[in-house]
């Protein structure tokens, strides 16, 4: 259950964050940080993605801190161009590991409600693949097939790089 762990805030800074050109809305500008003593606090991180709650590169259980089991609820604030918005995060801890996370929409304008819905619908998910041959499909959408010339050029470069 390693992917149930939240990672500490600073490790999750998104490479894209510096390019963000809008005031960050709910698209996941949140990082849950478990602080000593077991209280949970929700900070607005400088990230542009909702990946923070789903990535798992650092496990809390590997730290020397230990946390009391239980459910913790906290409210997160973030600023938009139409004012401050809130969202509620509930975290369940067991043996210092987050075993469940739930986020509740607390936005008060339609657009923020929509963005929070998008965040809530997605923040737990990590995509997994299935073999195309195992599934009945009419079509597959993805990147365009690559033209011959492009592939040839790549192979030549590869050959040059090896020699």
């Amino acid at each position: 259950m390693s992917d149930t762990n939240l990672q500490p805030s600073t490790t999750s800074a998104h490479p894209n964050s510096k390019k963000s050109m809008m005031p960050l809305l709910v698209g996941g500008a949140f990082v849950v940080v478990v602080v000593a003593g077991g209280a949970t606090a929700l900070y607005r991180g400088g990230t542009a993605s909702s990946q923070t709650t789903t990535s798992s590169s650092t496990s809390l259980s590997t730290t020397t801190q230990s946390f009391k089991d239980g459910r913790y609820i906290s409210e997160g604030d973030y600023m938009t161009h139409v004012g401050q918005k809130h969202l509620s995060v509930e975290v369940t801890l067991k043996d210092s590991v987050i075993t469940d996370v739930n986020v509740t929409n607390q936005a008060d304008d339609p657009m923020s409600v929509r963005y929070q819905d998008i965040f809530i619908a997605n923040y737990k998910q990590l995509v997994v693949g299935k073999k195309i041959t195992d599934i009945q499909l009419s079509k597959v959408a993805g990147s365009s097939l690559t033209p011959q010339g492009f592939n040839d050029a790549l192979q030549k470069i590869e050959a040059q790089a090896k020699s």
Binding site: G129, K131, T133, I135, K139, S143
Partner: peptide, 30 residues
């Protein structure tokens, strides 16, 4: 080549696999 426009499929829907960005032999959704 994977970008699609569909029209009037006699009430049916076209099922399209979404290619895995790291493995073109896999799909990640429909």
């Amino acid at each position: 080549s994977g970008d699609l426009l569909v029209s009037d499929l006699h009430g049916e829907k076209l099922e399209v696999g979404l290619e895995h960005p790291l493995d073109t032999t896999q799909v990640i959704g429909i």
